[in-house]
Write a protein that binds this DNA or RNA. Sequence first.
DNA 1: TATGAATGAGTATTCATTCAT
DNA 2: GATGAATGAATACTCATTCAT
Lengths: 213, 213, 213, 213
Amino acid sequence: MTDSAAAPQHRADMVRNRRLLLTAATEAFAECGVDVSMSEIAQRAGVAKGTVFRHFASKDDLLAAIMLQLLSGLTDTAADLLEAEDAGTALRQFMTAGVEALAADQAFCEVIGRPSLQHAEVRDAIGRLGDIVEDLTARAKEQGAVRDDVTGTDIMLLLGGIHQTAVPLLDVDPQIWRRYLQLALDGLCVTGAGTLPHAPQAGLRLDAPSPPG
Amino acid sequence: MTDSAAAPQHRADMVRNRRLLLTAATEAFAECGVDVSMSEIAQRAGVAKGTVFRHFASKDDLLAAIMLQLLSGLTDTAADLLEAEDAGTALRQFMTAGVEALAADQAFCEVIGRPSLQHAEVRDAIGRLGDIVEDLTARAKEQGAVRDDVTGTDIMLLLGGIHQTAVPLLDVDPQIWRRYLQLALDGLCVTGAGTLPHAPQAGLRLDAPSPPG
Amino acid sequence: MTDSAAAPQHRADMVRNRRLLLTAATEAFAECGVDVSMSEIAQRAGVAKGTVFRHFASKDDLLAAIMLQLLSGLTDTAADLLEAEDAGTALRQFMTAGVEALAADQAFCEVIGRPSLQHAEVRDAIGRLGDIVEDLTARAKEQGAVRDDVTGTDIMLLLGGIHQTAVPLLDVDPQIWRRYLQLALDGLCVTGAGTLPHAPQAGLRLDAPSPPG
Amino acid sequence: MTDSAAAPQHRADMVRNRRLLLTAATEAFAECGVDVSMSEIAQRAGVAKGTVFRHFASKDDLLAAIMLQLLSGLTDTAADLLEAEDAGTALRQFMTAGVEALAADQAFCEVIGRPSLQHAEVRDAIGRLGDIVEDLTARAKEQGAVRDDVTGTDIMLLLGGIHQTAVPLLDVDPQIWRRYLQLALDGLCVTGAGTLPHAPQAGLRLDAPSPPG
DNA sequence: TATGAATGAGTATTCATTCAT
DNA sequence: GATGAATGAATACTCATTCAT
């Protein structure tokens, strides 16, 4: 009656295929962005196109699965860093991880930067990450590590901005984003520079504010 | 006595259509990125597909026209600011103009970020703008308005980065980019923060460094 | 009351434009074949596209006008040769003129070779030419200059065949068709070679035997 | 025990579709020439447009496949005939096969006649056929079966010419090409008719003599 | 369950033809 | 009458998705 005994070998193959698929898709989306074709992904995974659709009902679903994976990793990192003593260092470490993730994944930054591409699940995951980052930022502010007028939303958005700054030079120097991360961090620590204009509302969600169409 | 009297009557409609087209295309590219379809643009402009191609021989040409428009305005602004007494203010004004222009057209980011999307003319225009911005930056450094380790290339790239930071909130607050511009400016003025890592080579062009293939 | 007095200058321009148009179209069709665009023709003529359509209701009509011109010239030639003493020489001269006309005009041979491209008027003109060629051939047969089993239809069709034989080498040697004309003429003079199979019915029209569609 | 048992079931339909496609395309190209649309071909085959492109990556490839099929059959025939005792009969048999093949596919004429339409593979295949035909012709000349001043290139070109001669009557009498083949053969056997002018260079290739542009 | 062939809506682009000026 | 801008149907080709095997 346990399903482990009755499970046909098919099950094992399916699990294996799913793993192959996720790996291949992760790589393909990372290298080529969201416009990579399902055929390319299937080919990289060594399976047929139909198999991709058996595991993921649509390209959007597959993309979402991979984005959720990335977001989940980043969220774990952020949660861990919440425990750190030095909240300023923790924030810097989070941002480093975030920009690095973006720099390593073409599709990630396309999805993050364009709400229109986002699955509901992905939006929720971004929201959850945002909540933690809000805490992380609050702690850093409490410790005086970053200026008072910075919010968690700012930090989230800066990840995409820092990455985008570096994009045109990434071919030439794959680590160039560290330069712009540092520049941003310097800006975040400035005190006495006056208050930043246009403060985003606390807890702002990044999701699509208007219905598509 | 005005030159409008002598103009053939056709021109009036044509000019109007061209304007509709540029407006529609600018909006479409801004909202949807470079992958927006020519049909969509035609529809937004309220003209037939063929009309788009009468005005712009190819999608690339249309995109280039819009990019060149932006770049040309920006280059004029930069050139004017070269005459200003206060180089720090001049640089801030240039960046404001740059990000503002960018905020009106999201495709700009993609084109700047993807050499493969660039027309030769666009690359040249970016180069010309880059040269002036290099001067603008040099003057600001001489006057101590910005830190020593910042280059003109940094300034150019930051425009895209700042804009990208704001993109997800642009619907909610179309002026939110001012917030991230200020944050970046604050970072640019920091002194004694150590030297930025990964300095880009002086005079770096943003064009395709390697032949495609 | 004579129309020459009352005729506005427009009339003169129209006549001039029509001539320009016919010249340009003749050249364009000759060089590029029937697929040349109306724009190209208008441009060669130095007039606007609309003007082409004022003079010729459709591209087909324009093509027909030019084909009729060519056919008319060839028909005149054939008619003249009907008067010649030596019917064999006359036939050779006609065929020379015919193949030369084809070799000099890409569109002509496309139209001749494809009934589907033919206007009713063009078909009629081909019919008229065919009648004369039938006579020309009959006389040559009477004089023993060509074999008995050859018909006017054969002669008509051979023009296209001889030209087609030469086409692939026309770039290399623009007169190469003379080689294949000579070969065909040699075949036409053979006697005692038996009777040619599949004699075409006398007076066969080359027009489309089945309704288009 | 037959290999059909082991074949995946898909294959049956796919092979059938491919055959439908080749048949439809052959017919369509034959009737309409190379300018027939892929949609038309798909429709004739009773499949969707995408299916055509699954089987043949481009229109050129589809055309090439059909041309290569024809050329290959013809080359085999020619090679076999090289073994024949009577070289004159062999040459006649080759030409019969050639024109017959051509009569089943009008696009062949166009492809042969327009180097610009030719795939590299097609050019090579034409070259290979030409070499064999050169030998076939040489043998026929040695045996006195055809006149001395005829070359293999002539024979190759005559195939297209003979077919073209017959084209306008093919609807009426599908075997009419035999008439014009006979006429050409009679011309080829003539002796003492003088030398044909404009001899093509020995070994002349029919491929594009000058780079396009 | 896996396959990959078939589908058909979608893309950029061309061109004969129309019609407002 | 001449113009040339606008039209829209047509073309080759792509790709996410479906479904028979």
